[in-house]
Amino acid sequence: MAALADAGSRNRPSSLRLTQRLDTRVRARADGETTGRMALIIEDLHKRFGSVQALDGISFTVQPGEVFGFLGANGAGKTTTMRIVLGLMKPDSGSVTWDGRPAHDWPRRTWGYMPEERGLYAKMPVVDQLVHFASLYGMSRQRARTEAREWLVRFRIADKANARLETLSKGNQQKVQYIATILHGPDVLLMDEPFVGLDPVNVAMLKAAFLEMRDRGKTLVFSTHQLDQAEELCDSVAIIDHGRLVTAGSTRDVRRSTGHQVVRVATARDDQSWLESMPGVTVTRDGVDYAEVQVADGLSPQRILDAAIANGPVLRFEVGDPSLEQVFVERVGALEDDERTLAAAGAVA
């Protein structure tokens, strides 16, 4: 299932993605002066837990109205950074500002948080707890009730409104968790691994909800180690490893940050030994649908196309930027095997 979602996202026409990106940029520019300083600016965060340096100088900027991916292996410091942004934890040093003011000076309703360890009241009816959370952010109970029901209809769990949470399936509980995060209309959404534990149908539903939030002008930050999700959704990303920032910037810039391009090629023949035997070519992704290769300096991608034509009908040939996953592997090193398994298992569960 994970592979299916994976392939789907990669095969999505890039022109559509490009249009969406342009939309965002244009919108950001249209907001003009305000957006320049409205950013969420994280500056030089340090945090130590006993002997462990959890954060060691994390800095990045999230532009308002964008979807920002926060990438890193387990234990890289994603959750700690988010907790500090939300003021649940104090950094040893460093600062977080939103629109020029310290993040903790903003009213709590500015922030929406979906923790990695999902948490809701197991024995409380779904609508009651959504209303409870929204009322803590200062929303009127009546309005919260109405809007909660609208969201439940949207996520096709309207019939569960008065059921106790523990009677819902895990996927449906996740949907309730998401509604609890956004119901009070926060300007900034921070979500820790939002896609873990969702099946492809629910992932698609959640992605659509993300894009809708972005179109409403909300700023979304989410952490993930499913890099294909980030590549598909995020305008910008930051990669962190062991508490240090590896790279940050627009998704395109980050993908270009390796300084080289990759070739994606597919022929009608399943046998790809011709490609592997070519001098100066390293296969970085050996998929059923297409292969991704890195080409040594001085070797023209044109040579690969020639070889591909010689080896059967060419289904795909593309010279482009490396995938985020490729960048991640190059800059940080491969994710541990068990993390991949976890991510995949999470996507299927």
Binding site: E117, G119, Y121, A122
Partner: peptide, 15 residues
């Protein structure tokens, strides 16, 4: 109960 069900973090973002 709030700690073990991890609802604590959600509540603490609001209160």
């Amino acid at each position: 109960e709030e700690k073990s069900s991890r609802v604590m973090e959600v509540v603490l973002n609001a209160a």
